[in-house]
Nucleic acid binder design. Structure first.
Lengths: 341, 341
DNA sequence: GGTGAGAGCTAAATTGATTCAGCACGCCGA
DNA sequence: TCGGCGTGCTGAATCAATTTAGCTCTCACC
């Protein structure tokens, strides 16, 4: 009962056209080792498949084989930041290379929906599940039955699932060293977030970022002006920069918690008539799109979401061991740091 | 041959536990109208299914039914703009409401790969295909065999596929009117893009945006200073604003082609010591994330990507007619326009 | 000439769900 | 008492692939 005018060709059609059995066709098209079919038969079968435009029905294959060549990606938030787009881009391209496709679901920020999403993916018999997090947090992941592997991308789980995280400690060190190497000694830092640092549920990486920063400053014998902040956004950056310019007029550089904070730093300096770079150097973390829009361009350590997405696919598909992987954060050098040595 | 310790329960297991036939179980669980099975049998079957944690195998279902309850989304670019994220968010939530899942693929900006991606989706037997475009262009879509419906989201096709587009003409009119209603008469516009306007391959909407702008200004008897630009980005906005401030020092408002251009307008005004809003009002289009970061907040017409994604799903699933749909662009009022009446 | 091995291929079972055709039973009316 | 009908249910076919077991040749060797 074809619902279409033209029914799609099946294995049986190829078998009939080539004058072989379905078994032979299947073996030839999958070129199964150990099956001894004549070169002539193989040629006829391939020609018939080509002529009909035969493509195997994945539903039938996965019914028979129990594998779907499909991965599931569950995101806690498909947001407006670079996060989801680049992670999806990375994992799509890796999945494509392995001839897999990707199913996507979103929990809309409600962690209790992770269980539902996993369930839906398992129902659909995916071969592996990636859980992507906007902020690198620790989450609870319900037990997944049926031996489906799970990777947390940009986060960790309370039950020790495999994970892919950015190497924030190294990045913190690198950015701080960038400033001290350029000769800066009186440096403002906006700013640590004590609440986040103390709770892995809030972040498993911010603490490391600041650990690296502190280590590099200690190394260089620099004692920065550190301010704690409750959150990272342009308003916080703006207000704290104004205050810092008042309280420490001698600073030559500001290290911002992320690009959003740095945006506020730029705004505050413009308002005070200070020039970024020429008067005060600025550096930051994340490399959001707007970092490249700034004048002068903002030097920042990039969160490598695309590489992380790719790595998670490679873990699920066996190219990398299923473990805890740290991905380096490249330093994107633009024009916001002045060398004053 | 269960590859797992615990095999997943099947319909047959439910049938055995409940003492009914597979046929009966199937009819009851799908509560097929017209099948006359006793209430008692229904209760026993449901109890058994619940006890075993039975979930139907979608591969088996789609093999039998020819439908997969899966939609395909092909994006020309998963970029760093709000575009892909919000479109995906919108279509995921609509798909979820209809109990469908979404497969995603990306062409990495190479239109010739659209054919491959469609092919891959068709191979996977999706029930419908959405093609999402970063810029609202006209593209060639290869013929899709096998009656799979296709919708272009944020674009059109040369062969007249169904499409979902933002209502740019109305938005252009609305933003221009916002300025004239606030009493502005000497207005700079940065800027029309003649190349894009003349070629649907480049854009099918920019022309409409400016048609609306011109219509509203004509209505109000305003003759704006229009500059043509080859592209829309912060640098272009920056340079043209500097020039405009020199050549037309009397202007009270600037309408930017999009938020990226407006970003450059803000930067140029800061450099010239002009205050946005107090000295010169600014308005724009798109509502990228950075529009809300600006000081003062940028008033702009929002590209409703999420609504467009949702609409495309509803078209494919029969909630809306498969045709050419225009989605309104809401005006997001922030603080960048001053009333000078 | 009989036996064994191996090459080349195929029939049929299997996967899990849906659905058509039809069986058995009870009840009613004539 | 028999035919007819409705109710409640089931057997078997079907969807499109993969895989196992085994069949039929041919040829070599003793």
């Amino acid at each position: 009962m074809p619902k279409n005018a033209e029914r799609r060709p099946t294995l049986a059609d190829v078998a009939e056209l080539s004058g072989m059995s379905k078994a032979a066709v299947s073996m030839i098209l999958n070129d199964r080792p150990g099956s001894r079919l004549s070169a002539d038969a193989a040629r006829r079968v391939r020609a018939a498949a080509e002529e009909l435009g035969y493509r195997p029905n994945p539903a039938a294959q996965s019914l028979r084989l129990g594998r779907t060549r499909t991965l599931g990606f569950i995101s806690d938030q498909i947001t407006v930041t670079r996060y989801a787009s680049e992670m999806i881009r990375g994992l799509l391209s890796a999945a494509k290379e392995h001839d897999h496709t990707v199913l996507i679901a979103e929990t809309e920020g409600d962690d209790s929906m992770i269980a539902d999403a996993i369930r839906a993916m398992i129902d659909r018999r995916v071969d592996g599940i990636m859980i992507g997090l906007l902020g690198a947090r620790m989450i609870d992941v319900p037990e997944t039955p049926h031996d489906v592997p799970v990777v947390i991308v940009n986060g960790t789980s309370t039950s020790g699932h495999a994970s892919v995280l950015p190497d924030e400690r190294a990045a913190g060190e690198a950015m701080a060293r960038l400033l001290t190497d350029a000769g800066h000694r009186r440096i403002g830092v906006i700013g640590n977030n004590p609440r986040a640092v103390s709770s892995p549920r809030h972040s498993v990486t911010i603490g490391l970022r600041f650990e690296g920063i502190r280590a590099a400053f200690d190394d260089a014998g620099v004692d920065p002006y550190m301010v704690d902040v409750p959150e990272w956004n342009p308003d916080i950056g703006y207000e704290n920069t104004l205050r810092m310019l008042d309280e420490h007029p001698d600073i030559t550089a500001i290290l911002a918690g992320n690009d959003g904070v740095a945006f506020g730093v730029y705004q505050a300096m413009a308002e005070r008539g200070k020039r970024v770079r020429d008067d005060i150097s600025v550096a930051s973390f994340d490399d959001e799109e707007l970092a490249s829009f700034q004048r002068p361009g903002l030097t920042t350590a990039r969160l490598p979401y695309d590489v992380m997405g790719r790595a998670s696919v490679e873990m699920l598909l066996g190219d990398r061991p299923l473990g805890a992987e740290l991905i380096p954060m490249p330093v994107i050098v633009r024009q916001s740091i002045r060398d004053i040595t």
